[in-house]
Structure formats: structure tokens, C-alpha cells
Design a protein around this nucleic acid. Structure first.
Length: 212
DNA sequence: GTGAATGTTAACAG
DNA sequence: CCTGTTAACATTCA
């Protein structure tokens, strides 16, 4: 990534939007995405080459196996914080209006759509659906409103929990359904590989209702 | 050594 | 042109 434009500029702010990590400078913003294997370390280095770094008078930020690029437009233009599941501006009502346009898709696909639920990944998808009692292959438009409300609540609650666990212990606690043989309630877990994304979904036939 | 894993996107096929 | 599929990226752990 060309970094000349940052040289000598002051880092004003660090923001996040879903899985995007944003370093804000007066003359532009750098977006860093960790993908599957990425790491960002502060005042620490690994042996392998950094794919991104910021060096300050005191201290440095190092990115490994990350994609970094300068944003082509302003933050306001690119990011709507009403759909960022960990942001204070997260707006369930707004998300629900967006959901109406996705009525025909499965809820598993919709949950991973970063333009609806920015920040949801495969673990949170599986865990939130289990907690909400919704089968991942349910058709979004067929799910009762109360269940959708519950799901949105669980998405936020689980991502907050996940974040706290990673922050304190560095590891997620035991999952309720993800990569489990038996779910938290003791019921048998089924695993399926989604056709398009090839990602694995885990669910309990017993506890998660299929709406179709 | 093998395979799979918290993700996204470019390239390609039809 | 639109939709869907595959490959690529490159690391760590079991």
C-alpha cells in the first residue's frame, strides 16, 4: 500500500466498523481488514514480514496478513453505523427495514451480509441463531417478527460477549452450538456446508425452528 | 504431512 | 450484463 501520503501526519482517531479497522488521518483514512488470518499488534513484532505498519515517534502498530488501503471516499459516505452490531448507533429498527428487501433469502445468508449486520461472522451467526431458536435455513420473510427481534438481540448480545471474552481471556468461551457435537441444552447438533459460501453451519434440529 | 479455520474479492464460466 | 462458482491470499493449530 502506498503510504507516502501519511508521512508526518498525525493519527487523529482509530475507529471500527464491523470487521473494518480504520486509522483516521487529517488527509484520509486507512482501512485495515484482518480477513481470516490477520493480526494487528501494538509495539510488538512477529518474525514474518509486516503487511502494514504505522511508526510513530513512540511506538508502532503492525499488521500481519492484513489488507490495508486508503479509503476512496469519506467515512460518512462509506459507513452507516446503524448496522454495526457493536456500535452505539446500532439501530434494530433500521436493520428490520433493510431485512424486508431480503425476505426471500435464508436467514443464514442474510446474517452474514455485511451491509445488514456489519461485524457478524460465522461463529456469531451460528450462536445467535441457536440462542434465538431459529433454523439457519429459514426463509427470512417467514420468520415471525418477535423471533426476528429476538435474533437481533442475540446477535448484539453474543458479539458483545465474544468481544469481552477475547479481550479478557484472549479466547472465546465454550460455544453453545458452533463446532459442537451436542448443543448447550444437550440436543444433537447437525452440521451442514452451505452451497455458495462453503461455510459450515451448526444447528440443533430440536431447538431451532425451520420457517419456510 | 494434512486439513481446516473468526473472510473477502478477483477472475472466470455460462 | 447478471449470477454463480472457484481460486487466491498465507497462518496456525490439531
Amino acid at each position: 500500500m502506498p503510504t507516502k501520503w501519511i508521512n508526518g501526519k498525525k493519527l487523529i482517531d482509530i475507529k471500527t466498523w464491523g470487521k473494518h479497522l480504520l486509522f483516521v488521518f487529517a488527509n484520509g483514512t486507512v482501512r485495515v481488514h484482518l480477513g481470516l488470518f490477520g493480526d494487528v499488534l501494538v509495539n510488538e513484532r512477529k518474525k514474518v514480514n509486516r503487511s502494514f505498519f504505522l511508526e510513530f515517534a513512540k511506538g508502532e502498530i503492525n499488521g500481519y496478513v492484513v489488507r490495508a488501503e486508503k479509503l476512496k471516499s469519506s467515512l460518512e459516505e462509506l459507513y452507516d453505523w446503524r448496522i454495526d452490531i457493536l456500535h452505539e448507533e446500532f439501530d434494530p429498527a433500521h436493520v428490520k427495514t433493510l431485512l424486508k428487501k431480503q425476505a426471500g433469502k435464508t436467514i443464514a445468508d442474510v446474517l452474514m451480509d455485511q451491509q445488514l449486520f456489519s461485524g457478524v461472522g460465522n461463529i456469531i451467526r451460528n450462536e445467535a441463531l441457536y440462542r434465538a431458536g431459529i433454523h439457519p435455513l429459514s426463509i427470512t420473510g417467514k420468520i415471525p417478527a418477535a423471533k426476528i427481534n429476538r435474533l437481533i438481540k442475540e446477535v448484539v448480545a453474543h458479539s458483545q460477549l465474544f468481544y469481552q471474552q477475547l479481550k479478557t481471556t484472549g479466547n472465546p468461551e465454550e460455544f453453545g452450538v458452533y463446532q459442537q457435537e451436542y448443543a448447550a441444552d444437550g440436543s444433537q447438533v447437525t452440521m451442514k456446508i452451505l452451497p455458495k459460501s462453503k461455510r459450515k453451519i451448526f444447528f440443533s434440529e430440536h431447538r431451532q425452528q425451520l420457517y419456510q
